[in-house]
Nucleic acid binder design. Structure first.
Lengths: 348, 348
DNA sequence: TACGTTGCAGAAAGCGTTTTCACAGATCCA
DNA sequence: TGGATCTGTGAAAACGCTTTCTGCAACGTA
């Protein structure tokens, strides 16, 4: 009965601590700590002994204790307006792909309410000291925003930042490609279904895609026939499309460019509800290349969302180590995918 | 120059600690801790002073330190085979709904590789001492599985457990409803698109839905025309449907019951690829009521996934406090939604 | 007046790691 | 052969909280 010192009253039942391993391996706690983390200065013999003991006892370092001692959480946080969109779930999967492989964890948080800025502040507060880095998906901070010091480094996805690290795609180009495709097919009255928060302006992403669309239209001396806010939701897309279909026959677009596939799905619904056919009566092109877009034959602009997530995670990992981590805006390629939802105007 | 004691060298720059607040409010750290957590035994005057100081200094307790001291993480973990399915992302959203409101965090992890059991063990190990409770979504542990002690309590979604807490829907009933709907429409050759891991058996969920389908068919002295494994993915659904469509005209089903809407989307694609029409040439009913199912007019069995997530979160919260937390299997209601992908056989 | 109580607040002892610091022994160089 | 430089290890000091324990007043109660 010699153990009465530290082994006396563990709070949670049989959790083994570093002390147990040290005792079993006959070394100090410090050596266990070093051996477990593959530090070079521990002799192979001892390392083996420690690892064996750890395995035997099924020991895993308490992450909270190690965080407290080291200042590293091995956790990356992701903040997004909502978790249910296809875009965000793909992104999370991409993040998880690389974080898991690197032994890091993913902490997610939604900014459900509309008061974006405030929530972001709140979101960051909740994550402060909890994560090594933060990935902001689709939460638009304003390009002049600069991450405050004494807070975890931030990776912004979907918006270009003046300073700091951001990544995304060339939205202007995407808008251009989709619109030119429609123009190439002979369409001249083109309606846009853009997106943004309910009562606020369109999101920066929308602005850029709109600009791209406008550029394409300009070469024909045209303007968008109408721009509706589809809120980047299926239901919103349906409402937006309804509004477009309600236009008088003379002005009603013959083609719709929806800034997300999900909104396009809603639009498809609205179109079918009225007994109209796609692409017979109206063409529609989306954006994203949603997983089900191929199934429903939706033409779209593909963006590599999961890959975006992977890159963001790599960057976050980099930022969380103390690597020099410069300002940059990384752009991933996009691609127009033509399926059966768009057709030549003259074939009607 | 009186402060040289503990204030000397903070590791991360200007992070304010409880000591700062204590000093500013002129009380002890213990009192700050108590005041911040609304403990009753601190005088209102002091509480005010503390809260004011904390606000002034923008103080937030370091969660790792408090976890270490208290043994509570205020974090719930969720483990799922993959993050990209609609089902899982809805579930996560539901979890987040209530966790966020309760001031808890959500830690997510995917079990990407096929070796389920092993991964689960690994997943749990990674989460050990990191979360107060674990939610297992769609990872099938076997109904006789019982959570090991000295690990966080587990909530299982989608599988009924003999002991422990689980919740889900009545899958057998769901299978029955979908199949009877098809039978009511006059279909007699019905193909099933079930799901499970690539090389393994069908998942328990699939087994139950199959049983329900069999029960419905039995009243007509029938059996499923075929059962294909669609892997619960869109692509898998497409392949499964292709296999079905390749059957000889005499045996080919006139209707398909797909165990998930996503697989049904894939099936729709396969059907359209062959120039066949839905529901003209073949009827199809799905399962889930995926967000885009309404848009594409897919008949389906709706299950309240997000609500399932909310319940799971509530239960996880309960389990993480030391509430008595009995064994139970909670069932949420499901509902057949008839849209335009199913039609009477005789109308063909 | 003396003696429990009770209510509040501070001191201090953890919580389980990591990391600095000190140190013994081995190795090196002149 | 003596000092100087390495190497590998352990002791002990953080890390920033929570919680127990202790103690001082103020309050009945006898």
């Amino acid at each position: 009965m010699t153990n009465r010192q530290r082994t006396s009253s563990p709070r949670r039942d049989g959790v083994t601590t570093i002390a147990d391993v040290a005792r079993m391996a006959g070394v100090s706690e410090a050596t266990v700590s070093r051996a477990m983390r593959d530090f070079p200065q521990v002799r192979p013999v001892l390392r083996e002994r420690v690892l064996a003991a750890a395995a035997e006892l099924n020991y895993v370092a308490d992450s909270n204790a190690s965080r407290l001692a080291s200042g590293k959480t091995r956790t990356i946080g992701v903040i997004a307006p909502q978790l249910t969109t296809w875009y965000v779930s793909q992104m999370s999967a991409g993040l998880e792909d690389v974080l898991h492989a690197a032994g890091n964890d993913l902490l997610v948080s939604a900014l459900s309410t509309p008061a974006r800025r405030q929530d972001l502040r709140e979101g960051r507060a909740r994550f402060r000291q909890r994560v090594d880095a933060l990935v902001l998906v689709d939460v638009f901070v304003g390009r002049d925003w600069t991450p405050p010091p004494s807070e975890p480094p931030v990776i912004v996805v979907g918006e270009k930042l003046d300073s700091g690290y951001s990544l995304g795609i060339d939205d202007e180009l995407g808008g251009f490609l989709a619109t030119r495709h429609l123009l190439d097919l002979g369409h001249r009255r083109i309606g846009l279904v853009a997106g943004g928060a309910p009562e606020s302006d369109f999101s920066p992403v929308s602005e850029f895609r709109t600009a791209g669309a406008a550029r394409a239209l300009r070469s024909y001396d045209l303007e968008p026939a109408t721009i509706q806010n589809g809120l980047f939701t299926i239901e919103g897309g349906r409402a937006a499309a309804s509004a477009i279909l309600d236009m008088s026959a003379a002005t009603r677009p013959t083609a719709i460019f929806s800034f997300s596939d999900e909104m396009a799905f809603g639009a498809l619904h609205a179109i079918r509800e009225r007994g109209l056919a796609v692409p017979g009566d109206i063409s529609i092109v989306g954006f994203d290349d949603h997983t089900v877009s191929e199934s429903v034959g939706l033409s779209t602009v593909r963006q590599p969302v999961r890959e975006l997530g992977r890159r963001a995670a790599q960057r976050a990992l980099l930022a969380s180590s103390d690597e020099p981590f410069g300002n940059d805006h990384e752009l991933l390629p996009i691609e127009l995918i033509v399926r059966s939802s768009t057709a030549s105007l003259h074939s009607i």
